[in-house]
Design a protein around this nucleic acid. Structure first.
Lengths: 328, 328
DNA sequence: TTGAAAGCGCTAACAA
DNA sequence: TTGTTAGCGCTTTCAA
């Protein structure tokens, strides 16, 4: 394995010159630069990360701790972020984190042994105040994706409120006036903004909100099913259900099937996330797509060049058969 | 940030002694060991990974390149492997890899800059001969998960053949004699073993295989749907369809719905993988569960202590409503 | 069983 | 614009 010294000798220059070329620093004459590049090529030289880390006080590592939202979300963000990292000579270290009393310790060890140059956090970790506060103590640059709280670090998030309003508008357009809403625990930052969007949508359509049509869920299928049962058991049940994520919407879908209701004829159902399961559901689920992979890429880019890619926070309503008859 | 020198001074010993204690080397008197540990505690010392890597010729890093099977599979393996790594003071670096002509270069750069102490490969990468051969050149210890080919590195895989046979036996038990099979491209190593298992199952039931009942797929939903259409259009169609993965089975399910067939009355459908979508499907999909997270953990453990956890290759038939009426 | 010295491969700071 | 020198924080080797 050739070292930088070998390259320097091969090119007939000093190690520092090689280093300058490799790190794209200024003040190197094109002539020398080419000589160095040729030597690098000839020897098949690759810099040793560990040595660069130690000498340069940079780790070239971004840490990506995650807990357990959906697998699709985790990997999409991961892929986007990892690709951007690679283009910058960085690497992504992903660590699953348990939400127990050792969480802070785990993170602390991660930071202290790896010395990451940055960190990316997705829900639910990005909204855990104690965690974020802990990270801030180490001054690790942080980008939080889809965080709802105002905490340390930069934040990238789509406009949940207006999306939620758009979805309600769509349901109203389909002729619905009684629209049930299944929303996660109000602690969760998403809940607030999506709830406000729901109210916005109703207001724009001149519909008064009804407390009985708003049911709590916990992000999972079963809680969505429970909420849907309660809604459908109402003396005057809704004709449409909007769940604040796909899993809960799929729970509602299951209940509708179990009761042999026609979808969307008897009950229209909409979700949020564009999970793979939403596409495969029968009927396919109307939902909201966020550009998750772009989100990951944008998060990494913010850490590495400080710029926010505006495309990362675009979103799109996907109208499918669970709210629009005869769609495919 | 305290260094090992600070700890040594605090404890009144040499750096080397501290190093010995930290690395659990022999030949340290308990007395000194305790003194050192106390100093470590007192100062909140954490070893710097980069320095250890550089001095010790070990990276404490396992690389986990992946392409694009299902997200659930990727993250399950990732979680298992990362946790095991953590317990051993290792870290997992995950890199998405495109299947283009730059793939080998990408991997080469990964190996040369990170110098990982080991590598874990899942399908489809684990069965790409050129890739594995390339890795073998760098002598990076490798564990391949679910690989079907006989290549460099250790291999962990469930017994696809016998599982596949068990599934056919289950369908036969449900009264089916005409069982369609959707299998991936024969290039794919899984295809061979699952196909053999299918034949085994038929043979045990005294059923002669029919070429028209065996259709190719490409792992994705759409190809499963196509294959199912062909099967159902047969003059004498099957009463059950077994797809070699869940996505293809879900495609078959969609087709059955579109044709208003009752499931499993008119057509029973079974998959393979226990993907999240298989649970959420309507009706829920009979499938095979592999302990994916354990598989990841076992792969990391093989690299780090060389032992295979036998639980990692257990599997289980999950009988659900798509083949068994009135199940939930 | 412990310690001293040398160096892993690179970059920072400074000098030329 | 280029080169020299001195480390980064740890482990290895070898000596005590």
């Amino acid at each position: 394995m050739p070292t930088i010294l070998d390259v320097a000798q091969h090119a007939g220059v000093s190690m520092k010159t090689v280093s300058r070329v490799l790190n794209q620093e200024a003040h190197v004459r094109p002539q020398l630069r080419e000589k160095v590049m040729a030597a690098v090529q000839a020897l098949g030289y690759r810099p040793n990360l560990a040595a660069r880390q130690l000498a340069g006080q940079k780790s070239f590592i971004i840490a990506y701790p995650f807990n357990n939202p959906s697998a699709a979300y985790i990997t999409d963000v991961l892929m986007g972020a990892a690709r951007t990292c690679r283009d910058h000579g960085y690497h992504l270290v992903s660590e699953p984190v348990e939400l127990d009393d050792q969480m802070l310790q785990t993170i602390e060890r991660l930071i202290q042994t790896l010395r990451p140059d940055g960190m990316i956090l997705i829900p639910p970790l990005c909204d855990m105040a104690s965690l974020v506060e802990h990270i801030s103590r180490f001054k690790v640059p942080l980008v939080r994706i889809a965080g709802g709280l105002d905490l340390y670090g930069k934040s990238i998030a789509i406009d949940d409120r207006s999306i939620s309003r758009d979805m309600v508008a769509h349901l109203v357009e389909q002729g619905h006036r009684r629209i049930g809403f299944i929303l996660p625990h109000p602690d969760h930052a998403l809940a607030q903004s999506r709830y406000r969007g729901y109210l916005d949508g109703l207001e724009e359509a001149g519909i008064a909100p009804e407390a009985s049509l708003i049911r709590p869920g916990r992000f999972d299928v079963e809680s969505g099913a429970q909420a849907a049962r309660t809604l459908l058991d109402l003396p005057h049940p809704p004709t449409a259900i909007f769940a604040a994520n796909d899993d809960m919407a799929l729970g509602a879908l299951q209940v509708a099937h179990a009761r042999h209701l026609s979808i969307p004829g008897d009950i229209a159902i909409a979700g949020f996330d564009d999970s793979p399961a939403s596409r495969l559901a029968y009927p396919a689920l109307t939902t909201v797509r966020q550009p998750t992979e772009l989100l990951g890429a944008a998060a990494a880019a913010m850490l590495l060049d400080g710029e926010l890619d505006p495309r990362a926070i675009e979103h799109k309503l996907l109208l499918r058969a669970s709210t629009v008859p005869d769609t495919d």
